[in-house]
Each structure stands twice: as C-alpha cells, then as structure tokens.
Amino acid sequence: MRTGIALHEARVRYGPLEALHGVTLAAPAPGLTVLLGRNGSGRTTVLRALAGTARLTSGTVTWDGTDVTRLTAHDRARRGLCFVPDGQAVFGHLTVAENLSLSTPAPDITPALDAYPELRPLLPRPAGTLSGGEQRMLALSRALLTAGAGVILIDEPTQGMSPTVATRTYDLLIALSTRAAPTCVLTAEQRLPPGLRERADRTAVVVHELRRGEVVFSGEASELSRPGPQA
C-alpha cells in the first residue's frame, strides 16, 4: 500500500499549550486507518492538521508524497479532501435533501439513501432538527456522495448511532476504502470499533493510538492486543 496522507514530526500549539509533540503517522491509500485516543489525546488535532484547519507550528503534511503543508483547507478540499468534523457537520437551516444535493453535482442522491434508509422519511426536514445520530448519518452520507474524494477524514463517525447502524457505518467505510479508486479513509475514535479486530484478517486496518499528543502505538488492528483507551 502506498501512503495516502501523512504527518511528519508535526507540532501544533493552541496558545501556550502544545497539542501535538512531533507526531509522525501515515494513512495508506486505499485503506482504513483509525486514530485511537481518549479526549485530549490529540486525535482531533491530527485530523484538523491533515485537513488544514489547524496550522502546524513545525513539521509537514504530505499527500501522495507531495508536501501540502502550505495548502489552505479550501485548497485541500478542492484537491479531493473531505473532512467531517465532530459535532455540527451539516447545514442546520437546510433540509436533509438540500444537504445531500450540495454534496454531488448529479441529481441522484440514491446512494446516500441506500446507505442510510433512515434518512428517506426525513428528507423535507431541516437538518438542525435531527437527533445527533441522524445528523451523523447525514454528514457521512454527504461524504459518501462527494465526487472525487481521495482522502476522507471523519471525527467520531458513529457518535450517537445505535450499535446496528454503527456496524453498518464501518462496513460502508471499509467498502469505500477498498474500492478501485485509491481512497484513504481516516477516522478518530475513543476505542477500537467492535468487529474491526476480527475483520483484520480480510481487510488491513491501520491503527495509530495517541496519548497526550504523542503516538504510542502504530500497527494493524490485529496487532492491538488490548482494548482501546476508555473514555
């Protein structure tokens, strides 16, 4: 597997506090990579650094071997990077249908509704009135519809979802990461999602665990011999 997107000796500061202490990690393309870490570990900052919404104090971001550190978040998005942040990741004043239509130049939003049929009866509703889990389904559906996305970064993709929908979500992400086009899918979680360790014999899942702004483990999910960090 070739490297899709990577950080090299990355440091990020928020005022006087340093959130990342020289982090080096890579997410392959195609492939699924999971960042593990409890709140405050730096996993969200890693996603923001890769997306370009958090400026590096030092270090570099490379994408397919090219240094993109100086590219703005907008330029990275235009190049094919899709970032689904934690929390508010939909346009609350627009309907569910309008949110989905913004994500694809084609009028057909059927793939999103096939992935999450729960959204079909909600199409006329303003997205801001949905539950947390429904908003995550909508945000992920928009990512699935994004044309030409080469890198998809998702912070806590299954937050607020039922266990059944959460399992389906990771099935969708694995399918997305293993399709013919070289898509790099990188998620951030507090613990390893159920079933990923067992599926590692069929699908290589890369895991990076962070603690206090440093990488303490890098390898495949099958090599992670203990449960992920608890909240």
Rank of each mutant, 00 (worst) to 15 (best):
R2H: 07
T3L: 01
A6R: 14
E9N: 07
E9Q: 07
Y14P: 00
L17G: 06
L17R: 13
H21N: 14
H21C: 10
L25A: 05
A27I: 04
A27N: 06
G31Q: 03
L32V: 02
V34Q: 01
S41A: 15
V46I: 08
L47R: 04
L47V: 03
R48H: 08
R48W: 09
R48A: 06
T53N: 10
R55F: 10
T60S: 07
G65F: 12
V68P: 03
R70C: 12
L71E: 13
D75N: 10
R79M: 12
L81R: 02
A89I: 10
H93Y: 06
H93R: 14
V96M: 14
E98M: 05
N99L: 06
L102Y: 13
S103T: 06
T104N: 08
T110G: 11
D114E: 15
E118H: 12
R120F: 13
P121Q: 14
L122W: 15
L122E: 15
S131M: 13
E134W: 00
R136H: 09
L153Q: 10
D155G: 13
M161C: 10
V165Y: 06
R168A: 14
Y170R: 12
D171C: 02
S177N: 09
R179T: 13
P182E: 14
L186A: 08
P193M: 04
R199G: 02
D201N: 06
V205S: 03
G213I: 02
E214I: 00
G219Q: 09
G219F: 11
